[in-house]
């Protein structure tokens, strides 16, 4: 209990003081996770929508693989990307290992299957409703994809939030490919892991509280947006 109280006090003190290194870590966390979310959304949303509207041989296999990839252990993803980006790996010449870009790649790889699988689920319901009408208008499956993505935008916001949550809470992969370098690739989760390993549990917990606060704030913002717009479109 004392640890918890002390963690809470530390968290408040860190926020109140506007601690520069904490602020830097928070900003990097947001930048990395939001960039990863954007990249993953560009691939995952259209892919999920396409899977929702098309029926082709092998589609079920892709759906099963996507669902399985949702459970891809971050450490495994991190290791694969480490080996790819390492100077001795195929993408070594890019020099991306131990950079924020490597962390973006790792998080994007982790959440793309989540976004695609959830998007497919959300849009399949919408497609059931729209399919006949859109085909009556002469819309091809490819043309239906942007329509569904746009009309499902508020449900997809929840999908994006799930992706963001997973990305920002992830530690195993970014630790491996980012290296947790102070002032360069240290994000909230790796900082928490570091403080835990240094035995500074109150500080670790305080950072955890700040991370939760950020995630909650992002969710509240998105939910508010969704509600406001939802009232409009019905």
């Amino acid at each position: 209990m004392q640890d918890l109280a002390s963690a809470f006090a530390t968290a408040l003190a860190l926020i109140a003081a506007g601690d520069r290194s904490v602020a830097q870590i928070v900003l990097l966390s947001l930048r990395v996770s939001l960039t990863a979310l954007m990249v993953a959304a560009l691939v995952g949303l259209p892919l999920g929508a396409l899977l929702a509207v098309t029926r082709f041989p092998g589609r079920r296999v892709i759906v099963v693989v996507l669902n399985a990839l949702m459970g891809l252990p971050p450490v495994v993803a991190g290791l694969l990307i480490y080996l790819l980006l390492s100077r001795s790996g195929p993408l070594g010449p890019l020099g991306l290992l131990f950079t924020p870009t490597a962390m973006v790649i790792a998080q994007a790889v982790l959440i793309t299957p989540i976004l695609a699988a959830l998007t497919r689920q959300v849009l399949e319901g919408l497609w059931d409703e729209y399919a006949e009408q859109l085909r009556s208008f002469g819309a091809s499956a490819a043309r239906a994809v942007p329509t569904l993505l746009w009309d499902g935008r508020f449900a997809l916001l929840t999908v994006l939030l799930a992706g963001f949550g997973r990305a920002s809470a992830e530690v195993g992969a970014v630790m491996i490919v980012g290296g947790n370098i102070e002032g360069f690739t240290r994000v909230m989760t790796t900082a928490i892991a570091l403080e835990t390993s240094k035995g500074d549990l109150p500080l670790a917990l305080a950072l955890g509280m700040i991370l939760m606060l950020i995630v909650v704030a992002v969710n509240v913002l998105a939910q508010g947006l969704r509600d406001a717009a939802g009232r409009w479109t019905g």
């Binding site: 729209y130 006949e132 009408q133």
Partner: peptide, 18 residues
Amino acid sequence: VLLRRSVLANTLYPLRLA
């Protein structure tokens, strides 16, 4: 089957498609 858009946008949709 109405799209989750405005009345006008619904009417425009098939026209744009065409």
